[in-house]
């Protein structure tokens, strides 16, 4: 029963920067959580009106419909190049890409490595859900050994299909990267840590400290053939051993940053 005679204060509401469009994401898909965290962080930093987002190709192809600020839509994998172009001509704007694992770690590996190595002052929100979501659950560069997908129907055979790419670890070796971390969206504690990381990644850009990327382990209940709740357990039990959460690159300037 909601008490109508007792004053109440609002402690949380949907961020305005998220707009009012219902997403096309499946029930329980944590893309929505990642969107919300980006919107909250930009609001808290008062950067909403100063931000240009770069959407990518994959399930997040319509991200620009869900954020209430300027957006462009990149070709598959090319978001970091597009973001580079924007940031170089508008250095005072906050520019970020929002990319999935097929987009960033397969077709777009050249662009993300290029951007990171140049130390582009952009923020990358990277969604790792271990498959190609939009096209219906094919094997991605992040698909786990043994994981069944529609293009690895008997399970990813590492002898024939290779091993998953650990993006955060890989990019952390580049001098241009200032802040590279992996977080997860599978419970409230990790979501809060993810938000702090996203905030840091945007602060790194604001302060001009270098390239920043937050890899987020994210659920894909539909293509994993799990309920939304089971999918969160799958992240913890199956994904986290292959993709350990942690801070992979904190440059000394970032370490001094107070967020």
């Amino acid at each position: 029963m909601v008490l109508t005679d007792t004053p109440a204060k609002l402690v949380y509401e949907r961020p305005e920067a998220l707009g009012t469009t219902v997403t096309h994401y499946c029930p329980g898909c944590t893309h929505g959580v990642a969107h919300r965290l980006v919107a909250e962080v930009l609001e808290e930093m008062s950067e909403v009106g100063n931000t240009i987002g770069v959407a990518s190709v994959g399930c997040s192809v319509f991200a620009y419909n869900y954020f209430d600020f300027d957006f462009v839509e990149a070709a598959h994998g090319r978001a970091p190049a597009m973001a580079t172009g924007i940031k170089r001509v508008l250095p005072d704007k906050t520019v970020f890409t929002y990319q999935g694992d097929g987009d960033l770690a397969s077709i777009g590996m050249g662009e993300i490595v290029g951007a990171a190595s140049r130390g582009e002052l952009i923020t990358v929100v990277f969604i790792n859900n271990a498959n190609y979501g939009m096209t219906g659950g094919q094997m991605a560069p992040t698909t786990l050994p043994g994981q069944k997908t529609t293009s690895s129907p008997t399970g990813r055979d590492v002898k024939r299909q290779g091993y998953p790419i650990q993006t955060a670890e890989l990019l952390s070796t580049l001098e241009g990267s200032a802040y590279i971390v992996r977080r997860s969206l599978h419970n409230s504690r990790e979501i809060r840590r993810a938000k702090k990381a996203i905030r840091t990644a945007f602060e790194v850009q604001k302060k001009g400290l270098g390239f920043a990327l937050v890899e987020l382990l994210s659920t894909c209940p539909t293509n994993w053939h799990l309920t939304p709740v089971e999918a969160r357990d799958w992240i913890e039990e199956r994904m986290m051993p292959v993709f350990p959460l942690g801070d992979y690159k904190i440059s000394s300037a970032v370490a001094d940053l107070k967020v």
Binding site: A74, A75, A81, M82, T84, G85, R88, E111, G114
Partner: peptide, 17 residues
Amino acid sequence: AESELGAINMVYGAACT
């Protein structure tokens, strides 16, 4: 750029401004 793919997509981004 890292490649011609990178170069044309940087142009794409910058041209959007």
